[in-house]
Design a protein around this nucleic acid. Sequence first.
DNA 1: CGTACACCCTTTTTT
DNA 2: AGGGTGTACG
Length: 995
Amino acid sequence: MDSILDGLNSAQRTAVTSPASILQVLAPPGSGKTKTLTARVAYLLSHHDYRPQDVICCTFTIKASREMRERLSKLIGNQLESKLILGTFHSICRRYLVAYGHLIGLKKGFGIADSNDSLAVIKKIIKRLRLGIQANTARFRISSQKAQGIRCEELMVKRSKSSEQEEFVRVYQAYETALSNSNLLDYDDLLLRCADLLQKHPQCVSNVQAVLVDEFQDTNRIQFDLMNLFAARNRRITIVGDPDQSIYGFRSAEIKNLTRMQKLYRDTSVVILENNYRSSGSILSSAEDVIEQDTSRPTKKLHPTHGVGTLPVLRKLSTAAAEAQWLTLEIKRCIALTGNLLKYSDFAVLLRSASLSRQIESEMGKEGIPYRMVGGFRFFDRAEIKILLDYLRAVSHPEDSDTLIRVINVPPRKIGEETVKLLTTGAEEAKMSLWVFVKDVAQGRRSTKKGLSKAAERGLGNFLGLVETSKQKLLECRDDTAPRRLLEFIIRRLSFREFLKTAYPLDEENRWANIEELLAQAGDASNPAASPGGDDHLPGIDGLEQQQGHPGHEALTRFLANIALSTEITSDDSSKEKVTISTIHAAKGLEWPVVFVPAVYDGIIPHSRAEDADEERRLLYVAMTRAQALLYLSFPRRDSKNGDDTAQSSFLPPNIVDNRFRATGPKFHEKAVYGIADILRRPRPAIEEMLKGMSGLPSVEDDRWTADGEEHPGAVPKWDSSRALPPTYECSWAKRRRVDQEDRPKSCTYLASASYTMNNQASFSISNTLSVGFSTARQHMATQESTTSDRASIEEVNGVPNKITATSHIDSGLTQGTISTFFGQIGAKRTASKSPSLVNRQPVKESQDDEYAQINRFQASRDILQPTVPENLSDHRIQPQRWLPSRPTAEPSKPLEYTWLSALPKPEANPPSIASQQKGGNSFENTEMRTEAENDEIKRSQGSLDSIQSAATYHPATMPIIRQAGPTTGRKTLGIRRGMNGWADRMSKANNKNA
DNA sequence: CGTACACCCTTTTTT
DNA sequence: AGGGTGTACG
C-alpha cells in the first residue's frame, strides 16, 4: 500500500500523508507537484477508504487532468481512476449541470459558447443597439464580472454612474438574453450556474469526501466558491499551487485565494516543497533573481538538486529575423556538439504570444528543423473544421440561430444576405426560433413577407432536409459512435470534399487531411481530442434524480463540449522528433532540456498591453523554470515592425544579467556536455560522438553574430544548409575552421578538460569510478547504471552539493499563519541552520562561467590554466548523506512523461478512402437518402480511419517539413502551397512597401 | 439578389 | 489567414 510513498522526499511525504483536513501544498517549479498530488489522491483512497467516485479533483487544463488520470491509473490501478470525478473545473461543472441542471431550471441539452461565439453574439448586439463600445472589451468585462460572481441584474439595480457603464450593462443584459435564447452557456456560466446549483441543492455533492485542486493560484472567485461547495459535506480539501506561477490574472485568477482559504479554514495546514528536481543550479539562480525583483512577494528559496550547470545565455541579435536564424543555428550547434545527447524533441521555444512564432517557424522550415506549434491557433477553429462542427451543433442544438446562419449557405445554396434577413425578421415577428420558422417556411406552413426566390427556396429545402435527416441518423445511433457517424453522414451529403476542391482549389488536400483528422478524433471514443477520459458519469445519490437523455445525443453534446473546452488537441506526435514551439502559458507544468525564450524586450515581456507587470514577470519566471539544462533568452535590438530600437526587458536589469547570463552560446566542451547529461540523467556521450558533430557546423562557437548582435564582420551573409554552399562561403568557412583547429587542437582540447576533471576529483577526493582522459566517458557509461553511488559522484564532479536534507526542517508540516509568516519562518530557520549551502545563490561571476569558463580548453592548451577550485566551491565537503543510496528521485527528468504529446501510441499513417465522392453535377448536395449499402461503406471506412496522422501534423506551417521528411510520411502533397509561400509573399510585399 | 474579387484590418495570454 | 468592406458582374 505504501508503494504510494516510494520515490517521494520527506516534504512530499509529509504533504501526502498529512492528517490535516485542509491542506495547502506550496510547490515551486520542478518540485514534484503533480507527483505529490497524485500520491495524495491515492493515499486518501487507500487510507481513508474513500470511494473514487466520492473524490473530486480539479485541474485547469485538460492536459493536466489527462496526465493525472494516467499517473493515477499506474498508482492505484483497477480502473479505479476512471471513477474519480477528475477534470477541469469547467468540465466537472458541465457534468453536474447535465445531470442536475433541471433543478435550477436549466434547459436540457444546453450547448457551450466558446469565446468566438460569445464575441459574435456581442458584436451583433452592439450593432443592433448601435453602441460605441468595443466588442472585445465588452466580452472581457462581462467575463470578469461573471468570474467575480456579479450578475447583470446586480449591475442593473445599481444606478450606473457613467453612460459608458450604462452602455455596458445593456450589452451584458442583451448578451445574457441572447445566450439563454440559444440555450447556450459560456465558460463563465458553467462555473456560475454550477455554483448556483450546489448552493441551492447541496445534496448533489453530498457524497463527496475529498476535494483536490491543482494550480490553485489560478483559481478565480467562483472557482474558489465551487471548491468550498464541493467540499461542503466533509471539509477535506487539498490544494497545490505556487503564487510565483500565477499567470492567469487576466482571466480573473486571484492569488488572494491562498490567504482567503486560510482565513476561511482556521485549521489550514501548509506544506512547502523546496527541492527542485528539474533545473540546473545556474538556471534556478537566474530565475530566482528575476522573480525576486517583485518585492511584494514573500521570499522563498529553491534548492537545486542538480549541479550548477551551464550558465544561461542572454543573446542580442539585430532583428527578429536574425534572432530566428541564430536560434535555429544554435539548436543545430547544441545537437552537434553534444554528440547525440540531445534530440529535437528536447528543445522548446517559449513565446509570450503565439504570433511571435512566424519568423521562427519559417526559419525552421527553411533549415529543415521539424517542429510543432502548441497554443495559439486552434485546430477546431480552422474554417473547414468549423463548418462541420457547426453542422453538428445545428443538429444537436437548433435553438442556436447564429450557428444556423453560419452554415445555412455553406456550401452555397443561393441563400444570400437578403434571404437570411427575411428569415430572421420573420422569425422575430412570429416570436419563434429561427429554426422553427425556417422549418415552417420550407414546409409551406408559413411564408416570409416577401416571397423567396425559387433558388433560395430550393436551397432552404435542401438545408432543412439535411439537418432533419441528420437528426434522424442521430436518433438511430445510441452510443459513443454518434459524433463520428453523424460527421460521416454530413460529409457525404454535402459532398464536402467536392466543396473543398472548389472553395480551396490550392489547398484541398491539406484541408481534407484535416477533416480526416477530425473524423479520427470523433471516432476514437477512448481518446477523443478533448475527452479527459474516464466515464463522464456522476455517482448516483439517493433521492436525487439525474437527467437522462438519448445516449447518442449525449455523446454528441459531450463531444462538442469537449471541443469547446479544449485548448489544443491531443496528438500522438511523440514518435516524431520535433522542436516544440509554444506559448509560455501553454507550457506551464512542462519541462524541456533546452529552452529558448525569444523576444525578451519591453513591449513583449512585459507586454505593452499588460496591466499587471508582476504577472508578466512571473510569466518570464515560468518560462525560465521550464528549462532543465540549458536556457537561452534572446531579443532583437530593433523592432521588426517599425525598426525602432528595442529595450531589453526591464525584468533583466544589468546587475542580474552580468551575474547570471553570458552573452553568447556556451562552448560545449566535455565538461559542459557531461553536466548536461548528468542533469538529464542520460548516459554521457562518447567523445568521438562529440567530435563527429563538429564537422557539420560552420563554426563550433556561437560567433556568427557578435555579442552585440551584429552580423559578424568575417561571416558570410547567409548560411543555408539546404542549398549548395556558394564558393565564397566555403572559403570563409574553411578559413574559420582552420583557425579553430590551430587554436584548439582536438587532441589538446579534451586532455586539458580531462586534466581539469582530475583536479576536480582530487580536490573533492571522490569517485574512483572515474579515471583520466578519454576513458572517462566510456567507463562512466559502462558503470553508470549499475551503482547508485556513482550517480552521486557525478553530481559532485559538477561541483555542487546535493541538498537532500535541506528541507528536513519543514517535515513537521507547518500549520496556521499566513503564507508570508510561513515563508518567513522557513527563511529564518534556513539561514540559521545551514549557511554553507547557500553557495548556489551567490552570483556566478564570469570567471565561473560554465562552471569554469576560464578553464576552457582554449586556455588550458596554452598552459594558462591554474587548476584552482573556484572560490565558491572551495568549502565543499562531501556530506555523508550524498552517499546514501536512498536519495530521493522525485520528478525524474524524463521530459516526455510531461508532454501531452507523448501520451499515445502512434498508428501508422494510412490514407483512408472515405473519399467516395459522388459526382452530382454542380450541386454539392446529394439529396438522396442513404441506403444500407452506404451504411456498410461507412462502417468499413471506419476501420481505415482509425489510423490517421495527428492533427498537429497538419498545422499549416508544419507542412513544408512534412514534405522534406519525404516518403515516410506517406503524404507528399500536403498543403505546401499554402503553408509558407503565403508568408513569404506577404513578407516581401511588406518589405517592398518599406523600401 | 447573389456572387466573385480586390482591398483593408488585425494577432496577449485561455477555460 | 480570416474577417470585414466595397465594387463590378450575372
